[in-house]
Amino acid sequence: MSAHRFKHALSCLSLLACLTSTAAFAHAHLESQQPAADSEVSAPKELRLTFSEGVEDTFTKVVISLDAPDTPTEIIQTRNVQTDPNDQKVLIVTPAMPMVPGTYKVEWHAVSVDTHKSEGTYRFQVTP
């Protein structure tokens, strides 16, 4: 490979860097959750999110909101967002108040142990 073509290859690389950096970086995927997505359950005390790899609870955010069709969205305060002491892949979210019946939306923004971010949303229903 000549020096010219090498330069060409290098510029392709930097171009690639620009292109890929705008894409979403999915690293920790949500594998399962309790209560499960789209399920109907009686009021849970906590939410457990199980990821494909360990997450850093210091920088992982979970927003739970009561998502009723007619009323304005209400953000549920969380008391605690922490990983399971025995398993860093499991994130335990404890709401500050008991969860009243309704449809809940969970938006998660996870930071994995290899410092990559990922995010997602799911819903579940609390029955009376």
């Binding site: 090498f6 290859a9 290098l10 690389l13 690639l16 860097a17 890929t20 950096s21 970086f25 999915a26 690293h27 995927h29 494909s52 990559h116």
Partner: peptide, 18 residues
């Protein structure tokens, strides 16, 4: 140096798309 540049980029990309 080129290989190193590629590695620097690799570390920020997801290795699998699940």
């Amino acid at each position: 140096a080129g290989a190193l540049a590629a590695v620097s980029l690799l570390g920020t990309l997801p290795p699998m798309l699940a």
